[in-house]
């Protein structure tokens, strides 16, 4: 079994993944809704930009985050000046990296589920006196929620596995930014730590498997037109 330090690594990974998912969820949903429902000029470009982290080498994403959130970066300078905080070498930075990397996966899953909502039902609701907001809260959101949750779980799993962007952006600080994959990487550099690599890898595979199964079950539920609410 795991010792206290190793549990600490798992806990940190869950914290980073959880926060990354929670913060990314509304952003991903808004983007998914925009892509599914609104026609606007430059949509192709926005769509491509959202999907960039999926194809760009993670080290590049990490480096771009470093430029943006570094002390001289536009966001980093602003955070420092207004709040006196930095995300460099902090778990918050790891969560940002994980969130950015998970975003395209989440947007994809959510977009599909929003597109699957029958617009004819929404039209029926309009004729019954519901304005656009009521239609959104009473139909679009509840009908797409299984897919939204599936996307969130997928994003969570992706966040826990994030490596390249994280190590580039916030480095590999034990207890602060050293999540499961980073800890496994460190253990691999260390002679005689095979057992540790095994244990952490098993946890990693186990968590991913649970998340994927959960996501798949939710997706099927969405496909059947059933509802979790």
């Amino acid at each position: 079994m795991l010792d206290a330090t190793e549990w600490g690594i798992v806990a940190l990974s869950l914290k980073v993944g959880g926060v990354a998912m929670a913060v990314t969820l509304p952003i991903a949903f808004a983007l998914a809704w925009l892509l599914a429902r609104v026609r606007f000029p430059g949509k192709v470009v926005v769509d491509a930009a959202i999907h960039l982290p999926l194809v760009v080498p993670p080290v590049v994403t990490g480096w771009l985050l470093l430029l943006a959130f570094g002390p001289n970066g536009p966001i980093g300078a602003w955070l420092q000046e207004w709040f006196g905080v930095t995300v460099l070498f902090r778990w918050t930075g790891a969560a940002i990296a994980a969130g950015v990397m998970a975003l395209p996966l989440m947007v994809r899953a959510m977009r599909i589920s929003i597109e699957a909502v029958d617009r004819r039902l929404e039209n029926a609701a309009r004729t019954l006196g519901a304005g656009p907001w009521r239609v959104f809260w009473t139909l679009t959101l509840p009908l797409s929620i299984p897919g939204v949750l599936a996307g969130a779980v997928l994003g969570f799993a992706r966040s826990i596995g994030e490596f390249g962007a994280t190590i580039t952006f916030v480095s590999n600080v034990p207890g602060e930014t050293q999540t499961l994959p980073l800890a496994i990487y460190s253990a691999l550099q260390q002679p005689g730590a095979d057992a540790l690599v095994w244990r952490l890898s098993c946890v990693s595979v186990g968590l991913s498997l649970i998340a994927l199964i959960a996501s798949e079950l939710l997706t099927r539920r969405a496909g059947r037109g059933l509802h979790v609410l």
Partner: peptide, 20 residues
């Protein structure tokens, strides 16, 4: 006038009941 303020009782070819 937007549909929600027209007060049309619209019955469609398919019932379009809300499945949830």
């Amino acid at each position: 006038v937007p549909p929600e303020r027209r007060r049309a009782g619209y019955v469609f070819q398919e019932a379009r009941l809300f499945p949830h």
